[in-house]
Design a protein around this nucleic acid. Sequence first.
DNA 1: CCGGTTGCATAGGATCCGTTACATATGTAG
DNA 2: CTACATATGTAACGGATCCTATGCAACCGG
Lengths: 241, 241
Amino acid sequence: MAQTQAERKAETRARLLAAGADLFADHGIDGVSVDAVAEAAGRTSGAVYAHFGSKQGLLLAVLDAWKESVLTVLFAEVAITDSPLGQLAAVWDNIGDNPGTDSDRWSLLEHELWLRAARDPEVASALRARDAEARRRSGQELSRWASKVGVEPVADPDALATLVKALLTGLEMQRRIEPDSVSGDLAVIGLAALMGMTSPPSPSTSSGPDASRSKPATLPSTSDPSSDPTPTLQTSTHRER
Amino acid sequence: MAQTQAERKAETRARLLAAGADLFADHGIDGVSVDAVAEAAGRTSGAVYAHFGSKQGLLLAVLDAWKESVLTVLFAEVAITDSPLGQLAAVWDNIGDNPGTDSDRWSLLEHELWLRAARDPEVASALRARDAEARRRSGQELSRWASKVGVEPVADPDALATLVKALLTGLEMQRRIEPDSVSGDLAVIGLAALMGMTSPPSPSTSSGPDASRSKPATLPSTSDPSSDPTPTLQTSTHRER
DNA sequence: CCGGTTGCATAGGATCCGTTACATATGTAG
DNA sequence: CTACATATGTAACGGATCCTATGCAACCGG
């Protein structure tokens, strides 16, 4: 119908990016051919090369379009929740995404990108840029949160963000291989330890020196009825049609 | 030369495994052809299929031959060191292996295997078996160590091992992308937090409960002169020739 | 209404890879 | 010494993939 060329081009580009993200996440980058991406987008391989020049170009574009939405959604998610540990649980729900959600598939793509970055400097710098900003923003958020709750994390904001992300990433990996070995509360326990909360392994048996600070003393279960309304992660996948 | 057929067979098998591990680690599994592995082993692709049936078979065999040596070397390393935090540092040196060492390349292969396991049940079960035993042994070791040092970890042995490995894995990943963001001591700080050590800002000056905790990152440096005699990880790579 | 431009389709080339079927040589048993 | 078994080399097939070259139809400005 009445569609200017710029619109047509933009839609094709968006479709290719969405299809690329979807297929790459599901089958791995090497497991998806350029033609498959084009077909899933309702186009042909010619469009891919007209837009991105190469398969690698498409990959980098997917990564670039992806990075912002992931960050913004994550922080929006955390900002909504308010209970002290519920926020930690919310972080875990997004980063260490529970199976079944969309982010579950995407974490695989994220790992594949990481793996590629280890050997391809171009991908590496793209990831580096995103990670640097994520760490900066996470660090601010975490230390702000810590002072509000009244705990003393084990490291300065930047290093703390590194530790937190490292723990969550590692836990997510282990749950992928052995789901039972990573209980839902385990992430919260670990995060609490990094945040400087004295976490009693067996509840109410700590009897530590000053266990009665304001709130952070005991860890409630991660069940947090007020944290779930927000939808799961969404980038531009499945835009329309 | 006087070489019985069994010997010849065993040697080529060993060579193929070593070459496979080497090349897979360096260039990625999909980046290495069967012929390349065979050539690096001084054989041809026919030998690969006679021994392992397929490229995947070779991969599983490499993983299998690999798993034991990694575990044994790690625990030997930890057993040697004796200072409380030096052992944590030794763990980090081996799992989160510092760049330049051989284990550095292998961690890439490990991640690639993990990624493959997420989509291939056969690889998954192979990894699961190894991880389960590693966690079991690590848990024992960690809790034993904790009670000897006199600290109270934040979780029971099995869960603690999960947390520790998760943290180390995640840190290693982040250092791969941004080396400067993961200082040498950061791993020790994080591990100490998980082990329930209240990081002492300055030892023997533990007077103020929270006055001088502005710099909680003052654990003793990881420099541990007595931990280095053992060589880096070694499988059967580069046997002879 | 029209030449030029743009966006994408189509077809094909060139390469590479996993796998297999067969050939060869070396060891081994009788 | 002979005849078989086995380990490995050799060569080729079938398929998949990335990318290029070219064509065509829709849009744009005048």
